[in-house]
Computed example of a mutant assay.
Amino acid sequence: MKVLVLLALVAAAAAWPGFGFQADAGGVSDAQKQHDVNFLLHKIYGEIRDSNLKAKADSFDPEADLSHYSDDGAAVQKLMRDLKDHRLLEQKHWFSLFNPRQLIHSPLAEHVVLPPLYEVTPHLFTNSEVIEAAYRAKQTQTPGKFQSSFTGTKKNPEQRVAYFGEDIGMNTHHVTWHMEFPFWWQDSYSHHLDRKGENFFWVHHQLTVRFDAERLSNYLDPVGELHWDKPIVQGFAPHTTYKYGGQFPSRPDNVDFEDVDGVARIRDLLIVESRIRDAIAHGYIVDRLAIALTS
């Protein structure tokens, strides 16, 4: 719930001159901005502890003044309609790590350091056994140290590189990079992300090359290519949980790719891959939509 409140408060900064985030209107310092963000992200599933922020969150009306939105309020009006029609997820339900993206890319958060996600949502980065042990310790008011182990067993050769794939810092970097360069981003949302695709590809290429190097040093073959018509041999069980909603889904061994209704079909993906390979081989891309519009 507090994630949604955080987004509302960030939006309020643009619409509410005396809110606190907007330094040019209220002369609020970077230290105050940092204080507000820290309080909002501390124990994200609990109540907001700062009384001033709590009062503003309770009284904020995102539709009160639509002139402050770049789209004249179209997006927020749709959001509020969905809320009133009960189309949004209920409180204490699953949520996406990508929700804080507006704060990351907002100029209002300039000079504000966001806490690492493993501190805000530790259950998404630590196996469920450790989280459950921590909950029990909290309920009994018993201090303790909890040993976190990798998800698999030593019988599985892939566990030789679990230190890399399950590293908390590495996974935090990975998800943060997705939020920095979201694949769905459009300049019309707020600003241009320079060389978005190039930077995104470059970092992921570096990660995969490093992973292959780690595998070779542990007597494992490099990661094999994925083929749409062949199964994924190695399964994976993340052993992590949603705060509300149960375990993360696992992937058994030898899973075949399947169509996802309303999202993608394997046949279409094969065609797209073939076209990409053709474009690379020819050295250029033809925008057929542009041709159709000009012909």
Score class of each variant (00 low, 15 high):
Gln159His: 12
Tyr244Thr: 10
His204Trp: 01
Asp82Arg: 10
Leu53Asp: 07
Ile266Cys: 14
Leu40Gly: 00
Pro143Glu: 05
Ser128Trp: 01
Leu216Asp: 06
Tyr69Val: 00
Asp61Asn: 11
Lys138Ala: 00
Val113Ile: 15
Gly144Leu: 02
Gln206His: 05
Leu53Trp: 06
Leu216Thr: 06
Ala15Gly: 14
Pro143Gln: 04
Leu40Tyr: 08
Glu214Thr: 00
Met1Val: 08
Arg49Leu: 14
Ser217Trp: 05
Gln159Ser: 15
Pro252Trp: 04
Gly26Ile: 07
Leu7Ala: 12
Pro157Glu: 07
Glu110Ser: 03
Gln141Leu: 08
Ala281Arg: 11
Ala8Cys: 13
Thr294Lys: 13
Ile276Cys: 03
Asp72Leu: 13
Ala23Arg: 02
Leu7Asp: 12
Lys154Glu: 14
Ser59Leu: 01
Leu220Phe: 01
Glu180Gln: 11
Trp228Tyr: 08
Gly73Asn: 11
His111Tyr: 11
Asp187Ala: 12
Leu117Gly: 01
Leu66Ala: 02
Leu124Asn: 05
Ser51Ala: 15
Asp256Ser: 14
Gly20Pro: 03
Gly224Trp: 08
Phe201Val: 10
Lys155Arg: 15
Phe211Pro: 01
Ser217Thr: 11
Val37Asn: 04
Gly197Asp: 15
Leu108Asp: 05
Tyr242Ser: 02
Pro252Leu: 02
Glu273Met: 10
Thr294His: 08
Lys43Pro: 02
Ala64Asp: 02
Ala109Leu: 14
Gly224Asp: 11
Leu53Thr: 01
Ile104Leu: 05
Gly73Val: 07
Ala31Lys: 14
Pro238Trp: 06
Phe21Trp: 12
Met170Glu: 15
Lys145Asn: 15
Val255His: 03
Gly197Gln: 11
Lys56Asp: 03
Val112Pro: 09
Ser250Gln: 09
Val112Gln: 04
Gly26Asn: 06
Ser29Cys: 04
Ser250Asp: 11
Pro62Asn: 00
Ser96Met: 14
Lys145Arg: 13
Leu114Thr: 05
Gly26Lys: 10
Gly235Pro: 06
Thr240Asn: 01
Phe257Gly: 03
His191Val: 13
Leu41Tyr: 09
Arg277Ile: 13
Phe164Ala: 02
Asp229Leu: 00
Leu79Pro: 07
Glu166Ala: 05
Thr121Phe: 14
Gln34Pro: 00
Ile168Cys: 06
Pro249His: 08
Leu108Trp: 09
Ile44Thr: 02
Val263Ile: 08
Ser148Gly: 12
Lys43Gln: 12
Ile291Ser: 06
Val28Phe: 15
Leu226Thr: 00
Gln32Pro: 09
His86Leu: 11
Pro252Asn: 07
Glu63Lys: 03
Gln141His: 00
His123Gln: 05
Lys56Glu: 02
Ala55Cys: 08
His105Gly: 06
Pro116Ser: 08
His173Ser: 13
Arg251Ile: 12
Ala12Cys: 14
Ile168Lys: 08
Phe95Trp: 09
Thr172Arg: 03
Lys154Phe: 13
Arg136Asp: 00
Gln206Asn: 09
Asn218Ser: 13
Leu83Ile: 13
Tyr219Pro: 00
Ala8Leu: 13
Ala64Gly: 01
Asp278Cys: 10
Asn52Gly: 09
His111Pro: 01
Ser128Glu: 04
Tyr163Arg: 09
Glu158Trp: 13
Leu220Cys: 04
Gly46Ser: 04
His227Ser: 00
Gln77Asn: 06
